[in-house]
Design a protein around this nucleic acid. Structure first.
Lengths: 111, 111
DNA sequence: TAACTATATGAACATATGTTCATACGCTCA
DNA sequence: TGAGCGTATGAACATATGTTCATATAGTTA
């Protein structure tokens, strides 16, 4: 891993919204739509953050009919993967993130 | 740990120069001066990055006569500390960082 | 005191980033 | 085909960030 790559990955995590998105995707694959509702943010900004995460290689997308689903990617480079994994672990267990997961479960039950 | 704190810590690491500074300070306490020479950057920018790291609580400074020495801080909050530790570990072993350590050793021998 | 070394900081600038609004695009179904 | 839903993206904007240059501050020594 080059230093540029490390910085790129760390920057990808350096934002509240992206951290919360990653927290959700750590659990399961989700449609853009579901992420918007869970975080209470408009579709535009969620989509842009997802695009950035995708370009950084942290998530990937999959279109299914009208919806686009995003999920975490297991990075090929061992160091990069370890970095991502340790950050994801490092932030888990924080209040905000547990709250988001709760809300996601509630929304899923409703439909 | 609050989400704001997590973002703050991650942002502190999201820069090449700061990553390289932290890599050096992981090994030992250093004067601003030594960091400048090792990284080949001017004093102003190194000082500013150090100030930022200090305000984030990741490093602390100690004045000894004319010089100011910086070193890593063990964060009190368990989650924060784990996050910092795992990032520091995650980036260790990268080429650029090993090169910096080599150069530091060379500079130290010279005096 | 003055001269010197080491460090911090203000001003200015270019660039990056996060956000909103509006709109384009892609797919499905009637 | 057209209507409607879900998603992506361009334009515009305010703010944050990284950098350089010049200067201020602080300690040391002659």
């Amino acid at each position: 891993m080059r230093i540029k790559r490390a910085r790129q990955i760390l920057k990808a995590f350096s934002d509240d919204t992206r951290l919360r998105i990653i927290n959700l995707l750590e659990k399961e694959e989700l449609a853009v739509n579901e992420i918007c509702r869970t975080l209470g943010k408009n579709q535009s900004i969620i989509s842009k953050h997802l695009t950035r995460l995708r370009l950084t290689g942290i998530v990937r997308d999959r279109r299914n009919g009208i919806k686009v689903y995003y999920c975490m990617v297991r990075l090929k480079d061992r160091h990069s993967n370890r970095l991502v994994r340790s950050i994801a672990q490092g932030i888990s267990g924080m209040e905000t993130f547990r709250g988001d997961l709760k809300k996601l479960r509630r929304l899923k039950k409703k439909r």
